[in-house]
Design a protein around this nucleic acid. Structure first.
Lengths: 157, 157
DNA sequence: ACCTTTTTGATAGTGATATTCATATCTTAC
DNA sequence: GTAAGATATGAATATCACTATCAAAAAGGT
């Protein structure tokens, strides 16, 4: 898979158009708007949340929720967007123009901190090999209480 | 949270009764049967799958799917069972009387291999600390293709 | 601009899980 | 052991996130 790290929006868009052409798919306002919204808001969106934002910022498009789901799947399949499944809080998407990273999540306030650790990645690779697996992906989420919420708790007591 | 590792069934049951009493909940045949079924079948169940097994083994209970969901939630909230969310293949539950472990999952056939790696655990702890978090939990799932599915793919081509 | 193909939004459908409610079952107090 | 008061149950229904369907609209090669 291509590496989209630190790509500018123009480069990303060019990449997207290439993918569309290669698959005989069409470049539409809706698809472009979803991509640019994700690019300009580098945070974690649920499908619903992204739908509401696009609807609000671009009412003339009259975008449908189905298109958001379809486009997110398309983008994810082609590696332009990545997703994480947070149990109760649903599935969240983010633009994949950042280096690979995992997530540290505050159970109290939902704050997400991104991190990256090569040593863990190597160990994961090793574990997969030891079990005869070809590693294709992984999910690592650390849950805890962030410093702010720790303070709040102390004050509360 | 209490540590339920390598607990015998009697101990587990005593623990469960204690939890029920503490919350003014009742000890019922259904709840007991679900706990014992999980204990005696140390594998990963979907709710549906567990429902079918209990229904088959204990037809006299005439258990309802709603009770299975309710009981699994209750057990999970109290740490007696743990779950993992596999995107497409649903949520799976297992009894939590085993040492802590993570999961290596085959994306093709859904096979789950359990593993444990102290070095990764230590690194996770360290990452949380560096970010000012108190680590309470983590989720680590490695996705790949198991050796059997690798063979099948080769034969198919 | 035309013609073919793909995309769209609205709507209905799906599957997993949650809720409702009348009845059944448990626990406690006696 | 039994009655009284509580919670739990199963069946049915509702909900939620997501997917499929379909007629109308838009894209893009010519």
């Amino acid at each position: 898979m291509k590496n989209f790290e630190t790509m500018s929006y123009d480069e990303l868009l060019k990449e997207f158009k290439g993918i569309l052409k290669a698959n005989a798919l069409k470049f539409t306002k809706q698809r472009e708007t979803i991509l640019s919204t994700l690019y300009n808001n580098p945070k974690h969106f649920t499908s619903e949340c992204l739908y509401l934002l696009v609807k609000q910022k671009h009412p003339e498009l009259n975008i449908g929720i189905a298109t958001v789901y379809r486009t997110l799947s398309l983008l994810e399949e082609n590696g332009l967007v990545s997703s994480i499944s947070l149990g109760a809080q649903g599935k969240k998407f983010e633009i994949a123009n950042k280096p690979h990273h995992d997530h540290l999540i505050c159970s109290e306030c939902g704050k997400i901190v991104e991190f990256e650790n090569e040593q863990i990645e190597r160990l994961q690779q090793q574990i997969a090999e030891e079990n005869g697996f070809i590693l294709t992906d992984h999910l690592m989420q650390l849950y805890g209480i962030c410093s702010e919420c720790q303070k709040k708790k102390e004050d509360g007591d």
